[in-house]
Amino acid sequence: MQGVVKVNSALNMRSGPGSNYGVIGTLRNNDKVEIIKEVDGWYEIRFNGKVGYASKSYITIVN
């Protein structure tokens, strides 16, 4: 499943599904990501070869 990031500035990509996990990357508005699965309001995603987590509130699913 594919998604597009929708933010005003930047979205942190984290090592786990929560804001208490470390930041491993930064996503920008309109970045395209691969959604692997949903975990407690977060998406596990793949972006630029990295796998991490981002809040699903800021990612819109596209077909």
Rank of each mutant, 00 (worst) to 15 (best):
R46A: 07
V33K: 00
N12I: 09
V5M: 03
G22S: 15
M1Y: 15
G52A: 13
S15C: 05
K32M: 15
I61Y: 11
A10Y: 13
S57Y: 10
S9C: 05
I59Y: 01
V23Y: 05
G18H: 05
K37I: 10
S55A: 12
Y43V: 05
I24C: 04
V5T: 03
P17K: 02
S9R: 07
I59M: 04
M1N: 13
L11S: 05
V5N: 01
N63P: 13
N12M: 10
I45P: 00
N30R: 06
I24G: 02
E44L: 10
I61P: 11
V62I: 15
K56V: 15
E34A: 06
N29A: 06
R28C: 05
L27N: 00
K50W: 08
L11K: 12
I61R: 05
I35K: 01
K6T: 15
A54Q: 02
I36N: 07
A10N: 15
V23N: 04
E44R: 06
Y53N: 01
R14Y: 14
V4A: 06
N12K: 10
G3N: 02
L11N: 03
K32T: 14
N63M: 06
W42H: 04
I61Q: 07
K6C: 04
L27H: 01
D31L: 04
S57C: 05
N12F: 13
T26I: 13
G52D: 00
Y43K: 01
E44N: 11
G3D: 02
I59P: 00
N30P: 04
Y58D: 08
G52T: 02
S19K: 13
V39E: 10
D31S: 06
G16W: 02
I61A: 09
G41H: 10
R46P: 05
N30T: 07
N8T: 14
K32G: 11
Y43C: 04
V39I: 15
G25V: 11
R46Y: 08
E34Q: 11
R14M: 15
D40K: 09
N29C: 04
Y58M: 09
S15R: 07
Y53E: 00
M1T: 13
I36H: 08
D40Q: 10
N29G: 08
A10I: 15
G41V: 07
G52N: 01
D31F: 05
R14T: 08
S15Q: 10
Y21G: 02
V62R: 06
V4T: 11
F47R: 06
K6W: 06
T26R: 07
K56M: 11
I36L: 15
V4Q: 11
V33R: 00
V5D: 01
V39Q: 09
E38Q: 09
I59S: 01
V23K: 09
G18S: 08
S57I: 15
S55W: 12
M1P: 06
I24K: 04
G22P: 09
N20S: 14
G16P: 00
Y53H: 03
R28P: 03
T60L: 10
D31I: 04
V33L: 08
D40N: 09
Y53R: 00
L11F: 07
D40S: 14
W42R: 01
P17Y: 02
N29V: 05
E44K: 09
L27S: 01
T26C: 05
V7M: 04
Y53M: 02
N20G: 13
V5K: 01
N8V: 15
N29E: 13
I36P: 01
G52Q: 01
N8M: 11
G25C: 05
W42C: 03
Q2F: 11
G49C: 06
S57V: 12
I45F: 09
Y53K: 00
N12H: 09
K32Y: 09
R14H: 10
G16S: 03
S9L: 08
I61S: 06
K50V: 13
R46N: 10
S9E: 14
L11P: 03
M13Q: 03
N48P: 03
S55E: 15
E34V: 08
F47K: 06
V23A: 10
S15W: 08
R14P: 02
I61D: 05
K6R: 11
E34I: 06
I61L: 13
I59Q: 00
S57T: 14
Y58K: 12
D40A: 12
S55T: 12
A10P: 15
Y21Q: 03
I36C: 04
V5F: 01
E34S: 09
K37M: 08
G16H: 02
I61K: 10
D31K: 03
N30I: 03
G25E: 12
A54K: 00
G52P: 00
G16A: 03
D40M: 14
S57D: 15
Y21P: 00
Q2A: 08
V51R: 10
K37G: 08
A54E: 01
G3Q: 02
W42E: 01
K37T: 13
V39P: 00
S55C: 05
G22C: 05
L11G: 04
S57N: 14
S9N: 13
Y58V: 08
K56E: 07
F47I: 14
I59D: 00
D40R: 09
G22I: 13
M1L: 14
K50A: 14
V4K: 05
M13H: 02
T60W: 13
G49D: 13
V39A: 07
Y53G: 00
N8C: 05
V5P: 02
Y53A: 01
Y43G: 00
M1I: 15
R46M: 12
T60D: 15
V23H: 05
I61F: 06
D31H: 04
A54F: 03
T60N: 13
V23F: 04
S57K: 12
K32F: 08
K56R: 10
L27V: 10
G25W: 12
A10K: 12
G41D: 14
K37A: 09
K50Q: 10
L27Y: 01
I24P: 01
G22D: 09
K32P: 12
Y21H: 07
G49V: 08
I45E: 00
K6M: 14
I24L: 09
G52L: 01
E34C: 05
N30E: 10
L11Q: 12
I35S: 01
G3S: 03
G22N: 14
R46W: 11
G22T: 11
G41Q: 10
K32L: 11
Y53V: 00
G22W: 13
V51C: 05
V4R: 04
F47P: 01
I45N: 00
N8K: 07
V4F: 06
M1R: 10
V4P: 01
R14I: 07
A54T: 14
Y58W: 10
V39K: 08
K56F: 05
S9W: 08
E44W: 07
G49A: 07
N48W: 06
E34F: 12
G18P: 00
